[in-house]
Structure formats: C-alpha cells, structure tokens
Nucleic acid binder design. Structure first.
Lengths: 293, 293
DNA sequence: CGTGTCATTGAGCGAAATCAATTGCGGTGG
DNA sequence: CCACCGCAATTGATTTCGCTCAATGACACG
C-alpha cells in the first residue's frame, strides 16, 4: 500500500500504536491529548481572531479504534465531538435494523449535534478507522458562547453549515441520477481530502460499497457498476478501495450516462481505439452531458 | 370551501384583507404586529420558564401574500423568520432553474437558518398562503442568547430539531418507496395540523402535486397516482386539494421493500392470492405491508 | 365562455433494484 | 506454506418501480 496516497494518518502501522506516534496538534500527556481553544477553533476552521491563545480552558481528546461506536441512538446526550483525525460514519437505524448512512465525518467535522434537541443522540456514530476525537461538552460550549461572542457565532455558523450540507444531500437524493450521485460523492470526497492536505487525485475509500450505497440511496451493486463504468470511460481508476480521479470536471458536471445505445457505440469506439493502440480517454462527445431542463 | 376544515386563517376571504382581520396573539399597532419574548418562545414551543414577561424587547411581524418571496438565494442574510401563521415552502434552485422543495414551514417553524454560515441565504422562501411572520434579527438573537441562558439553549435546540428533521428526510428519500413517502408525508402533515389545533383528519393541501413531488423526490404523476391508490383502498379520501385521513395507522406503518429479505413474504402473499383468484383491488391485507427486515 | 393552471389517468419504457453466480483478498489455522 | 473461510466486490440476468410522454378532466379567473 502506498502510504502517500492514503490519508491514513498513523494507521499505516496497522492499528497497533495509537498513543505512541506523534500528532500534529494538541498537547501530549501520558497517552491523553488535550487541545486549547485556539487549536479547537483551528480544527473547526473557525476565525478565532479574538480568542486568547493563553486561554486556560482545555479540551480532552479520546481515541477510538476501527469499528468502535462513539455513541448510539437514544443514549443520553451531553457532548459534541470534533474529528481531529480519522474517519467515521453516522447512521440512522430504522425499526427493522436497517442502517441508513447519514454522513462520513472526517477531520474538522462536528457531530453529535442531533442530540441537543431531545437530549439524546438521534443517530449512531462508528469509527471507520482509528480516530482521535476532541470532546466538546455541551455545557462547556454554551458557557464558552457566553464568554466569547466570536465563539458563539462560530458555533451557530458550524451548525448552519451542517444544515446546508444536509439540504444539499436532500436535493441530491431527490433530483440526481445514480451516476450523478456517485460522481458528486467522489468529487466531494476528493475536495475534502484536498482540504485536509491529502491528494485529491488518489485516495482510498474508507467505507464499503454498501455504505456508499446507503449514503447515496443506492444499492451496492449500482455503486459498483457505476464505478466500473466511470473507470471504463476514463473518468476515474478503480481498484477495490483505491480511487484515482482522472477527470474531476466531468465528474462535477455529470448528469446522466449516455443512453445504452450510444454507450455500446462508445464501447465499440473504445475497442477499436484500443485495437488501433490509441490513447484511451479522448472520447469526444460526452463526459459532461447536461440536463436540458 | 369549508372554513372549518381548513387551517386557512384569514385566507378565507381570498387574499384581500390582511391587516383588517384580528389575530390570536401579538399586539396590533396600525397594521403592524409586535410580539414580546414570551410570545415568541410560545410560538417556537420553547419552555420559557425564566423569561420575564415584562421584557421590553419587541419583535416585529411582517405580512406576506400568497406567492410572495420572503428571501431569495444569495441575498445577504441578517434575520431569521418564525412562522406565526400561514404556509410557505423553501426551495433550492439548481444551475438549470429546477426547483427542489426543501420544506414546508408552518406555524411555529423557524427558517432562514441556512443563511448563517455564508452570510447569504442558501435557499429561497415563498409564501403558499398569506403569512404572518415574526422577524428575528440574528444580532438580536445572539444578544438574547447572552442575556438569557435559557434562550440560548432553546435556539440551539431548535436548530438541532431542524437538523434531525433533515436527517429524517434524507433517510426517507434514501430508503423508502414512493408510496411510503407519500404516506409519511400525509401523516406528518396531519400531525403538524393537530399540533396547531386544526383537524388532523380533514385538511386542505396548500401545495401542488408538483411541489409535493419535488419535496418527496417523486414526479407529480406518481404523487397523484399514489393518492388515488390510497383513496381506492380506503386509507384516505382525496378530492383535489382536500385530504381526509381515514387510516392513520396504516399510513404510518406503510412500507415497501427496504433493503433485502421481507420480499419473500410479499411475493408469497401475492401468489397465494393470485392462486385463489381473488379480485384485484380488494387486496385485503395490503395497505400496511411491513418489512420483516 | 374561453384560457390557463392543476390534477387525473393510461401506455410504454428505462433506470435501478433484486436475485444469483463468481472472483479476489485477508486472515486463520492446520 | 497452503487450504479454507468469510467478507467485499464485480458482473450478469431478470424484474419492477417510477419516470416520460400524452390525452383528458376539473376548476378558477378574467
């Protein structure tokens, strides 16, 4: 495995030493990490102009290993979580035990917000990799909001951001085709990786096809087929969990795959090209098919 | 039109006299209405224990007529809206002008929250009936949050509630069949009407089939057909915009094929019926098909 | 009484789900 | 080390749900 391509962070040595490796931010103390307010704001990408770096307030970190649950549905709520490193999923579980993936929190994301209203978490959070989370007790948050005007505003802002994200999700599920959803999902992941300083062109998926499908409102087979189709066309490369983004712009603007008839044509063209030793990804007349109305 | 069944509020005389009719709460002043903090909390269904009723702070009301836009996408954000009476829709508009309905705010609902993050509204709000809205300037809100601990908590709570609602929406779009979506939509509306003190059994839809379809991720034809089907089965009565709820429990538990399994049972039931040469649309035991997960 | 908007209903088709078979990979234990 | 197992992923065959296209009906409005 290429350690350069994967945003694996300290997972490279395979799940063993969490507390031993050094980390970018936070103060290390006998295996526990603490962050001050400034660091917390940085992780959340919040403008912390008037925040004193000498603030004595500290925020505890907690580590979770792959597969562990951070909180479950119905569990009494009292703290929010900020992802310092690692990857997670949040899921809703219906009355029959079916999981519905709601989000894939990663570095800088906040989760647990759904617990504020009813004082119990409305969703379940599971670590998809080893994780380092910053605990943000809700009490502390409100106290902080009253002390620092900036911080209060920032918290509202972050919650608003979450809401907008959900809205975009609803819009996507309601209006886009399967291919468009998968395409946007990939672009989205790519951009988030870029934000985190990793490669936006080559990365490993942290979730299964099933989880992706659940997130996008599709079956795992459809996700798999769509990825394969994108691969054939040269938009991406796929090898199991490893994804290479080849044509971000096409993915971003993709609405629907060409009709199966012209698709056959395309494949044919591709074959003839391969036979002629031509370069693959030229395919002139599509890749950014737009909806007409 | 039966004025008793419809939560029409001052709309009966058809869009003419807004400022003339009297309203339940608020202080009337030459055509403008003002609410104090207590009233505002009441509308939001917030426990306002420690809120002084003698609070001098007043919140302005604004009236909108059917079809008017409250705010548009990209417009600078500075105030939130609380629905005092009337019905609205919030929509997202994609790059090709297609509308995607996000919510149908009604009495007690808060909207405009999506503007906090980017300082510009991310969605557009349109009045589906004549509306009376309470303005809640964001500045005022934060100030209030610092003054009244209770209020700050309440605002977080309301935003959390919105987020949970969106999550439920995502879950529905991702996992439920067309019939289940429509069924839940009806139940949801019914309950909201009940909360507002109107009949939960008989009401008028304020939105078109197209808008319902957009909201549920369906086409207007599918919505229409589904309503007709529910009507034939006796779950509801439909006559244009007028809906009568006949079997809330069946609607509430109506499902379709979530992920896997459960299908065997369905097919078996179908086959046994077919074998018994049963009449088509009598189908006694459907209308509340449950997934066995 | 036309005209436009919204709703209903039907026919046909296509995208995605379901069902099913196979392959690839990582771990485990003989 | 390899055989075996379980899980994930790929791929194909078939079904079906919901969309598209289209015609018609109901109602409000000028």
């Amino acid at each position: 495995m290429l350690s350069t391509q994967a945003p694996d962070v300290r997972t490279d040595s395979t799940t063993t030493a969490l507390h031993t490796s050094s980390v970018e931010a936070g103060w290390q103390r006998q295996g526990k990490l603490w962050s001050n307010l400034k660091e917390l704001c940085d992780v959340l990408r919040i403008t912390s102009a008037a925040i004193h770096t000498d603030e004595e307030l500290l925020f505890q970190h907690v580590q979770f290993k792959t597969g562990q649950r951070i909180h479950t549905i119905g569990q009494p709520f009292d703290t929010l979580y900020i992802v310092h490193s690692g990857f997670l999923k949040t899921v809703l579980i219906d009355e029959f035990g079916n999981e519905q993936v709601l989000s894939f929190p990663m570095k800088g994301d906040l989760f647990g917000v759904d617990g504020i209203h009813t004082k119990r978490y409305a969703s379940e959070a599971v670590a998809l990799s080893n994780c380092d989370l910053i605990l943000l007790p809700f009490k502390k948050l409100t106290a902080l909001g009253r002390a620092h005007v900036e911080f209060e505003h920032a918290m509202y802002s972050v919650m608003s951001r979450e809401l907008v994200r959900e809205q975009a999700m609803v819009s996507m599920l309601g209006a886009l085709s399967a291919e468009a959803r998968v395409a946007r999902f990939l672009v989205n992941l790519s951009e988030r990786y870029a934000d985190m300083g990793y490669s936006s062109k080559l990365f490993n998926l942290r979730m299964t096809r099933h989880e992706i499908g659940s997130y996008l409102g599709l079956t795992l087979e459809t996700v798999s087929r769509t990825l394969s189709a994108f691969n054939e066309i040269g938009l991406i490369t796929v090898d199991q969990r490893s994804i290479g983004i080849k044509d971000p712009e096409a993915l971003r603007t993709l609405r629907r795959l060409p009709p199966s008839s012209s698709r056959a044509k395309q494949v044919a063209a591709k074959k003839s090209k391969a036979a002629a030793q031509q370069n693959d990804q030229s395919d002139p007349d599509w890749g950014a098919q737009l909806a007409s109305a």
